[in-house]
Simulated scan of single mutants.
Amino acid sequence: MLISEIDLVSPVSLQECLKLLSDKSIDQRLIAGGTDAAVRMKEGKWRPEVWINIKGLHELRYISEKDGAIHIGPLTTHTDIIRHTLLQKKADVLVEAAREVGATQMQNMGTIGGNIGTASPAGDTIPALYVLGAVIELRSITSVRLVPIEEFFIGPGKTILKKKEMITNIIIPPQKANEFGIFQKLGPRKAQSISIVNVAISLLMGKDRKCLGGKIAFGAVAPTIIRAKKCEALLTQQPLIDEMIQNIGKIAWKEVMPITDGRATAAYRRDMASSLLERGLYRLLRRWENDGEK
């Protein structure tokens, strides 16, 4: 099948889009920024009968705060995220992750909904959403359901999203004043590479390097993003002095479950996961001591 033989329809409203999705007789797929779609089509994958182009649905491109939560529309671009002051103040780890999504052109075109929907274990924004406790709103023509992000992914490129559904909202609780996040990524080339390993960290800090709670999520080291629960359990045991941080890094080496592929060996990924976590914790502590703790 040639790309030119594939039909494209462009609904003018969310309701029209959901109505199109409800037609189970047609093999169809949503397209927004298209940054992943072009690559997959060249690989001979993602060849539906009909592409539903949702790029023009401006009602799905927004960032707002209401009812004690931050709401992000799925057509919000990575550039939108990077530039938005609300997210810079109350979801800093997501802003850092968006900065690592390819080059500027990719950030301008790519959407957060597309990054989630592609369900790549190496997706940069997904670990950040894990540590922020994001909830995904899935909508069909007849129903709406809210799914915690950790329940959304079931394997590489696989989610619980039904064919008649689409992502319509990403909901995250705002960070507290003493909560800081960071995103670390290792790729073969600066800025434009798929992650070999990435990690998102969020810490709730008290005085004297005492961590009151924290979350750690790794990407590209398992079939889906993983929460490093054993590492998280150590965060609050003692103040985060050098020895404690190094011990947490060693636990990360054991907790991740990477594979060997064309980009890196499993052993290398384990080593880098440990190093990235240590480096991220040190960066967060410096930020807390310089900007947060008064």
Rank of each mutant, 00 (worst) to 15 (best):
C211M: 05
D92E: 12
R139M: 15
M41D: 01
G34V: 09
L276F: 10
G133N: 10
A273N: 05
G123F: 05
L57H: 00
G73A: 04
E137L: 10
E243M: 07
A200I: 03
D291Y: 14
S25F: 03
L2Y: 12
K254Q: 13
G114D: 02
L277Q: 10
G123D: 02
G181V: 03
I167G: 02
L2S: 14
I182N: 12
L212N: 05
S10V: 09
V93F: 01
T111R: 04
D208E: 15
E289I: 12
D7L: 14
M244A: 13
T35S: 08
C17T: 10
G44E: 10
G44H: 09
P239V: 03
T35E: 01
L235R: 00
S143K: 15
Q184N: 09
I126P: 02
L284C: 08
I194H: 05
D23K: 11
L75R: 13
S193N: 10
G33T: 06
Y62C: 11
R139A: 11
D124E: 13
R83N: 12
D27W: 07
Q238W: 06
V256S: 03
G155R: 04
T265D: 09
G187A: 03
E65F: 14
A98V: 06
K215R: 15
K190A: 08
L86A: 08
G113W: 01
D80E: 09
K190L: 14
R279S: 15
L161R: 15
S275N: 14
K158A: 13
L234C: 01
C211H: 02
E289Y: 10
L8C: 11
W253N: 11
K162Y: 06
I3H: 12
I182F: 12
S274R: 15
T111W: 02
R286M: 09
I216Q: 00
H58G: 13
K190D: 07
A217Y: 00
I6G: 03
R145F: 04
R99H: 13
G110T: 05
V199C: 11
D242W: 06
G249Q: 04
Y130L: 14
Y130P: 11
H84Y: 13
G157I: 08
M166Q: 04
I26V: 15
I6R: 05
V256M: 04
G219T: 07
I182Q: 11
K230A: 00
G206W: 01
K207R: 14
